[in-house]
Design a protein around this nucleic acid. Structure first.
Length: 794
DNA sequence: ACAAGGGACCTTTTT
DNA sequence: GGTCCCTTGT
């Protein structure tokens, strides 16, 4: 009688055999190795749809976890297109979003106030700085950034202060700060991102009825991007997986690029071992790229030693070769690219015209985007840069949110400090110090300590708090929109930015905040993630889903699941958050879209990291140079070098039809000209799939310093002639004798470490070039020009 | 109290 | 080169 394959067969129609096998696996733990472009999201969503439509589980019995809000949304959208199911009520979301939901439902058991707010990375850093100042921690020896990294790292490993191994004085101090930080957060009723995970995990671990309840409830746990899970997330999954649950983990070890933030690829192997996984399926059929691109990716990644092993294949045919370009400078690289793009967009090549939004420029680090932006800007080509500040991270928005947070929770000292003198109202550092002393003495929040302050400073502070308290009262009966509007007026934010010269954009953003709140309340049905679970969602009503009663397609089968014998106490109240609190949570968990002009047809610029999961017809990977890609900080350690290689693999597999790899001989970085050798990754690509647009080992004539004094914005584009095969003409003509570094004996040069010196002699060519330089203070040195930072001094 | 200027810093990023 | 943070000057 089960599974009802007939009912589900339309779902399976367009799947290849491996995908179909993955979707219809029995109710046991499974690991799906899903290569780039192999239809991973499709398999995940179809698996859920298949489980539901064959009556193996009700929608309440599914837990599906992703890393990003975008991925979670995508999953819900696709799922609701496949089945008439209420995805909003389902437990589909990000790790942090779901943990938030869980903690909201059980805030008492988790020892949190019902109004707890979430600290983002910025908030966390300022909280740590404040704490360190208060306890006179030497910020030379313990930089706040490093402390933040330490605390986040501990939490990712599931370690509370008392569990951290202490080896030496340094460690002891760090742990002490960690301890103090925890106490501060608890006092203020705030949690950071790591805390959302850790506290959820601990509640599951320590509370048997709760754990057993959720274990019984979630029959199927599906994890996306499993290679990116950290130690704590893996432990959390283990807690939730009970006797009868099946964990369906989907991931790609070759795309693991987040080790630096705690991701453990090893979780995949651990999962297979600890869960006794019997079903492993590889999805190797790629539906994205032509084979020259895929062969390049396969060949490159085969140089990694630690792999589970996987080879992508395609039916799409070889397609075009991967084009490789070498430029004399980063500026020339950018200009060549812009010229190439113009042809691509116009479509005067063998391929038809490409849309601009189907062309992406990828780079290893954000600093590289500037030259490219300059070139695009000068050529009047529309472009869009990903990354950077997002909406809810902008200063003016953070200020506005801080006002709202203090309304919601007066004990939130981080927010209080952010706004106590913003806009300026005569409360300076001295007053704030006094207030902090008073608060510490009384063991209270800053807000509550105000009443015990005296004098002129006290009067100012009292005035501020009175204003806040009045605003809180006045907004009690208002809608979210009205609350925000009143706050914007009363806080003086609008007025302050009006008087500022550059304040126009900021005011626009603040107005946009009102819109964001409005659409949050209406469209978003205000905050799936932020609302505590209504009791029926945990009760029998949810577990014995009755599709008809929800207005759903009655063909979804009834599921016979045991009614829960236990309902968690917290959930009984059916308590929900105020719209304001819900909105604040939303703001913290979903930092908002990157940029406004999303719909525009523009060239896409982003780091390789942010390109993960995306695909484009045409991809330029720029700055393929030693020290940049692979990054210099990752070159010495074999492990991180492998991660760099995976990063390159991710970059290559973004391209559907056309791929360019480029590098420059010299590059202006941090205000210094650097001589870079082309990336070792070029040697790891199949020669047959490549097409060198520039001679493979050429030597550029002319001075590399020709542009050193500043970027001439109107440098003539190099590409005049355009051949049918490739749009590019050879770059700067090879002129002859003068070597690429442009150094000559007798020249005065500047070195960052050794200062000014005189070139004595030069030896070797290109990457081997070395110069003998006489430094008055350090003597005569031999310097490898590909490494040393030498700038000519006029 | 606050604005303007000097100096160190500088992978990758989501939540 | 650009940003953030701290110091200095009014």
């Amino acid at each position: 009688m089960f599974p009802e394959v007939d009912a589900a067969s339309p779902l399976l129609q367009n799947l290849n055999p491996e995908q179909g096998a993955a979707v219809t696996l029995p109710n046991e733990h499974a690991l799906i190795l899903a290569g780039a472009g192999s239809g991973k999201t499709r398999v995940l969503t179809t698996r859920i749809a298949w489980l539901l439509s064959t009556g193996q589980v009700s929608s309440g019995g599914i837990l599906a976890v992703t890393f990003t809000n975008k991925a979670a949304k995508e999953m819900m959208t696709r799922l609701s297109a496949m089945l008439p199911v209420n995805v909003r009520g389902m437990w589909i979301g990000t790790f942090h979003g779901l943990c938030n939901r869980f903690l909201r439902a059980h805030y008492k058991l988790a020892n949190l106030p019902s109004t707890f707010q979430i600290l983002d990375t910025q908030d966390q850093l300022s909280a740590i700085k404040r704490l360190m100042k208060q306890h006179n921690v030497d910020d030379e020896r313990f930089p706040a950034k490093q402390t933040q990294w330490f605390i986040a790292g501990c939490k990712e490993d599931g370690l509370r202060p008392n569990m951290v191994e202490v080896r030496g004085e340094e460690d002891r101090k760090k742990v002490e700060i960690y301890q103090l930080y925890e106490e501060q957060c608890q006092r203020e009723g705030v949690v950071d991102f790591g805390e959302l995970m850790l506290r959820s995990y601990e509640l599951l671990r320590d509370n048997d009825p709760i754990r057993e309840h959720y274990q019984r409830r979630f029959r199927h746990i599906l994890i996306d991007e499993f290679q990116d899970t950290n130690k704590l997330q893996y432990a959390w999954i283990k807690m939730l997986a009970g006797e009868g649950s099946s964990v369906f983990a989907v991931g790609d070890d070759d795309q693991s690029i987040y080790a630096f933030r705690g991701a453990r690829v090893g979780n995949m192997a651990d999962f297979v071992r600890e869960f006794h996984v019997r079903h492993q399926i590889k999805l190797e059929q790629n539906y994205r790229s032509h084979s020259n691109i895929l062969d390049s990716a396969n060949e490159l990644i085969s140089h990694n030693k630690t792999r589970l092993g996987k080879n992508l294949r395609t039916d799409a045919g070889p397609g075009e070769p991967v084009r490789v370009y070498e430029a004399p400078t980063d500026l020339a690289e950018a200009q060549w690219m812009v010229e190439e793009m113009r042809h691509l967009v116009r479509g005067d090549g063998p391929e038809g015209g490409f849309e601009r939004k189907e062309i992406a420029v990828l780079y290893r680090s954000n600093a590289q985007s500037r030259v490219i932006e300059t070139a695009l800007f000068n050529a009047a080509v529309p472009y869009r840069v990903y990354g950077g500040l997002r909406f809810f991270e902008r200063a003016e928005i953070k200020h506005a949110l801080a006002y709202l947070r203090v309304l919601e929770n007066p004990n939130d000292d981080t927010s209080f400090l952010r706004i106590v003198n913003f806009p300026p109202r005569g409360i300076g550092a001295r007053s704030i110090e006094q207030l902090q002393d008073a608060a510490r003495a009384a063991g209270s929040s800053l807000h509550d300590a105000v009443k015990s302050t005296t004098g002129k400073a006290g009067a100012n502070l009292a005035g501020f708090v009175a204003k806040l308290d009045k605003l809180r009262e006045d907004t009690l009966d208002l809608t979210l929109r009205e609350t925000i509007e009143l706050m914007l007026q009363q806080s003086g934010l609008i007025e302050h930015y009006k008087s500022e010269r550059e304040g126009g954009d900021r005011i626009e953003n603040l107005e946009e905040l009102v819109n964001a709140a409005e659409s949050f309340v209406t469209q978003e049905g205000f905050g799936r993630d932020a609302v505590a679970l209504p009791v029926d969602e945990l009760g029998p009503g949810m577990l014995r889903q009755s599709p008809a009663s929800q207005g759903l397609d009655p063909s979804l089968p009834e599921v016979n699941e045991p009614a829960p014998d236990y309902v968690p106490p917290d959930a009984e109240t059916g308590e929900t958050l105020s719209p304001l609190a819900a909105f604040l949570t939303h703001a913290a968990l979903e930092s908002g879209d990157n940029q406004a002009q999303a719909g525009q047809d523009a060239i896409q610029l982003m780091t390789v990291h942010s390109a993960k999961g995306l695909e484009f017809d045409c991809v330029f990977i720029t700055g393929m140079e030693e020290g940049l890609f692979p990054h210099e900080n990752s070159m010495s350690d074999p492990q991180s070098l492998e991660e760099e290689r995976r990063l390159a693999y991710v970059a290559i597999t973004r391209a559907r039809k056309r791929l360019y790899l480029s590098h420059a001989q010299t590059r202006l970085l941090h205000g210094q000209t650097r001589y870079n050798v082309k990336s070792r990754f070029f040697e790891e690509l199949p020669e047959g799939a490549l097409k060198w647009l520039t001679p493979k080992n050429q030597n550029f004539g002319g001075s590399a310093f020709g542009y050193g004094s500043g970027y001439p914005s109107t440098r003539p584009a190099q590409s005049a002639g355009f051949s049918r095969e490739s749009f590019s003409s050879p770059p700067v003509p090879v002129q002859k004798a003068e070597p690429s570094h442009g150094l000559k004996g007798g020249m005065k040069v500047f070195h960052t470490k050794f200062g000014e010196g005189t070139v004595v002699s030069i030896e070797g060519q290109n990457e081997d070039a070395r110069a003998q330089v006489n430094f008055p203070r350090h003597g005569i040195k031999w310097l490898a020009l590909s490494v040393a930072k030498l700038t000519p001094v006029p």
